[in-house]
């Protein structure tokens, strides 16, 4: 957004600035990163404790990387979350386009309630239902791959992707699309060239949410995972009674590090391109 200013009382001021908003945002960012900083710090802890400092060491990185269970769990988490985010965002975008800005559509309340259903039921309930249902499917088909986890995650991520996209679509300016249609653009061209670019930030936000929600899931995954399909959260949940080992801190820090490097590369490249 180009900085918009207006003249008022002879002084120039920014209209987008609202008093107190920027400081609040800065504090929010600091607070969000405080626990992450602790996590990163303690991943270099020499002692087995996650709260007592025993000196700097890369010990837990070695442990984590040698422990096939932890690395496998991290990889499984990423694969499932990646697929779930893509699939749920895709179908949620379609549903949002279908259900928004159409005036009254018979049955729209039903669609709306169905799409939001995964929000309303505690995880454990879906987990038990899926356990029984998928066990039947597994028995019938013999297939035991990651498909079940991806399917379940895609389903419960839908409302998280749908709601932001719908919110942006609601009341989005129709004039550009009408103009495009007046210029004999096909509905697909209109969508591709006008609606989609306008919608992109929301699709991006929705996909991020879906990804994060999938990464967080414990209970549903715990109930439907097949052998060797532990994700990081279920791996940690299993340890809960025996207390956490710091190698999960190390693997989380590694994941954060990889993410940051990829993002920086992405932003540097996109900056160079212009």
């Amino acid at each position: 957004m180009a900085e918009r200013t207006t003249r008022r009382g002879g002084k120039s001021f920014s209209v987008t600035r609202l008093p107190g908003f920027a400081p609040i945002a800065v504090v929010v960012f600091l607070v969000l990163y405080a626990p992450i900083a602790t996590l990163v710090g303690y991943s270099f802890n020499a002692s087995e404790s996650v709260s007592q400092w025993g000196g700097f060491s890369l010990h837990w990185y070695g442990v984590a990387l040698q422990n096939g269970e932890v690395t496998d769990a991290a990889i499984t988490s990423m694969i499932v979350a990646g697929f779930a985010a893509v699939i749920s965002t895709l179908v949620a975008t379609m549903a949002a386009l279908g259900t928004t800005r159409r005036g009254h559509v018979p049955g729209q309340t039903v669609i709306y309630a169905m799409i939001n259903q995964p929000l309303m039921v505690p995880e454990i309930v879906t987990a038990v239902a899926l356990l029984i249902f998928f066990a039947m499917v597994k028995q019938a088909t013999g297939y035991t791959g990651l498909g079940y986890l991806i399917l379940a995650h895609s389903a419960f991520c839908i409302p998280f992707a749908y709601l932001p996209i719908r919110a942006r679509l609601e009341g989005m300016d129709l004039s550009l699309e009408t103009a495009a249609a007046d210029l004999y653009a096909s509905p697909w061209q209109t969508f591709r060239r006008v609606t989609l670019p306008l919608l992109m930030p929301a699709i991006f936000a929705g996909a991020m949410l879906a990804f994060v929600i999938s990464l967080d899931d414990v209970v549903i995954t715990e109930f439907i995972k097949s052998p060797g399909q532990d994700t990081l959260p279920t791996f940690m949940m299993g340890q809960l009674r025996r207390s956490m080992k710091p190698d999960v801190n190390a693997i989380s820090t590694l994941l954060l590090g990889v993410t940051l490097v990829m993002l920086s590369a992405f932003f540097l490249l996109s900056r160079k391109r212009d």
Binding site: E69, V128, L131, I132, F134, A135, M136, K138, Q139, T144, E222, F223, K225, S226, P227, G228, Q229, D230, T234, F235, M237, G238, Q239, L240, R241
Partner: peptide, 23 residues
């Protein structure tokens, strides 16, 4: 050897009882 974790006896029983668990 592939190790898969559970966090409670009740979860483990429910999963094994449902069948097609693969363990």
């Amino acid at each position: 050897v592939t190790i898969t974790d559970f966090d409670s006896n009740d979860t483990a029983l429910a999963k094994i009882e449902a069948g097609a668990h693969g363990f």
